[in-house]
């Protein structure tokens, strides 16, 4: 059970958030022009670090913000939380 420090609401309990997967590259604009192997890697191969991982959480039962959370997968310590900036 973790506490996530929402940049808008302050520290809130995990129960308010929804995990939305590991952070990945933004959907390529020209996805049709990707090679098959690049496309499959994009779809199926996530980062799997033992240590700091970037992931996306939605403050679904809170303010609704989408957050980029840097979390240590060994200790579950949260290193950084910021608004998801997908640009």
């Amino acid at each position: 059970m973790i506490t996530i420090n929402c940049p808008f609401c302050g520290p809130r309990d995990e129960r308010e958030f929804e995990y939305c997967g590991p952070h990945r590259q933004k959907r390529p604009d020209k996805i049709n022009e990707m090679t098959t192997s690049a496309f499959i890697d994009y779809l199926t191969v996530p980062e799997n670090p033992e240590g700091e991982a970037k992931e996306v959480w939605w403050h679904r039962r809170g303010c609704g913000a989408w957050l980029l959370v840097v979390r240590n997968t060994r200790t579950h310590e949260i290193i950084k939380v910021s608004e998801l900036d997908a640009t």
Partner: peptide, 8 residues
């Protein structure tokens, strides 16, 4: 997720 992420 699509909106905030891929089509932000």
């Amino acid at each position: 997720k699509c909106l905030r992420y891929d089509f932000s």
